[in-house]
Design a binder for these strands. Structure first.
Lengths: 112, 112
DNA sequence: TGGCTATTTTGCTATAATGCCAAATAGTAA
DNA sequence: TTACTATTTGGCATTATAGCAAAATAGCCA
């Protein structure tokens, strides 16, 4: 594969990889409703705060979210607003996949 | 986080993870133009065939592509056709990100 | 300043992903 | 059957990721 092309896909893959974690998807979904500070997210997710901070830094580094300091708190908000549409798309993919699996299952029972 | 919610995001993350690799993104892009056999993909990508076969199995297992045998060859095609739209969306995200980085850079030069 | 709180960073361990090679499988054709 | 080709699988070394706990950092207030 050409280097230029490979580099392009490398960049795309980085964004996708940043989104490829249940906790990070939760965070992105939550930020669709407005900015949240780390402690708010921590209360919802219930993982160690250091773990959540790392997830946030991965999303930030990928350019998906941005932060803003206010006193002791750090508030995060979505930067790439196209993400919700994208996740909706994934949702539909999942539905389609499940529907077909169900259909296959039903048929396999019928023909038994 | 609630178990049901976590499971949902886990499923989404699986699909995203399957897409989070430059070679796999290349494959998905290529399959947008129609089905391809493993040897055709191998000729384009130039990695070991076994490596490509593994990437294909990851995409297949995620429900993104499907295969069809014809003689000695195995042809793969896109199953989740929403993927191209999705990748286009990522592309726009990237553009936006780069544009802003460029703007910041330009401003930092100006104020020096 | 010192103490308190929110967040990030570091160190560590366990687990998963990558990619090559060699071996196995499957289909074709002599 | 044997030989050949396309593809997949297993084994292994290397590297990346996840998550906890402890330490470091940063801002606030007395």
């Amino acid at each position: 594969m050409e280097k230029r092309l490979k580099d392009k896909y490398q960049l795309h893959a980085q964004i996708l990889k940043a989104l490829s974690h249940p906790t990070r998807l939760f965070i992105v979904n939550e930020l669709e409703n407005g900015e949240r500070c780390v402690c708010e997210l921590q209360a919802m997710i219930e993982d160690d705060v250091s773990t959540i901070s790392k997830h946030l830094s991965i999303l930030k580094q990928a350019g998906i979210i941005e932060d803003r300091k206010e006193g002791l708190n750090v508030y995060y908000h979505l930067k790439l607003t196209c993400i919700p549409t994208f996740l909706f798309c994934i949702e539909n993919m999942m539905m389609e996949k499940t529907k077909q699996q169900y259909k296959l299952l039903k048929e396999s029972v019928k023909t038994k």
